[in-house]
């Protein structure tokens, strides 16, 4: 995996860790004057998750998977039928 790929997966792990925000359980402050911290913080986690997945699909995309899938030519290689 490239360094950029590791960075991308690091962002996913960071989003998962930040999701467990037990430290802010009783925070009653408001963000932008109307969003409770419990909501705004996790909306931020959602944004981070989207960014992390953008990085993963950009830097750690399995390029050869389509070729592998197409080698069966979409007509099957008998696996499905062989078990019928």
């Amino acid at each position: 995996m490239t360094s950029a790929g590791k960075f991308a997966w690091g962002l996913v792990v960071l989003a998962a860790i930040l999701h467990t925000d037990l430290w802010a359980w009783d925070d009653d402050s408001l963000v932008f004057g109307f969003m409770p911290m419990a909501l705004a913080y996790h909306a931020g986690v959602s944004l981070l998750a989207a960014g992390a997945w953008l990085a993963v699909v950009k830097f750690d995309w399995p390029e050869g998977i389509e070729q592998w899938a197409s080698e069966g030519d979409g007509a099957g290689d008998g696996d499905g039928k062989g078990t019928r």
Partner: peptide
Amino acid sequence: GAGVYGLMASSSAIIHSL
């Protein structure tokens, strides 16, 4: 309360895409 978003939605945001 507002914590429902973290309980149900932001976990799905991470895990569904995963």
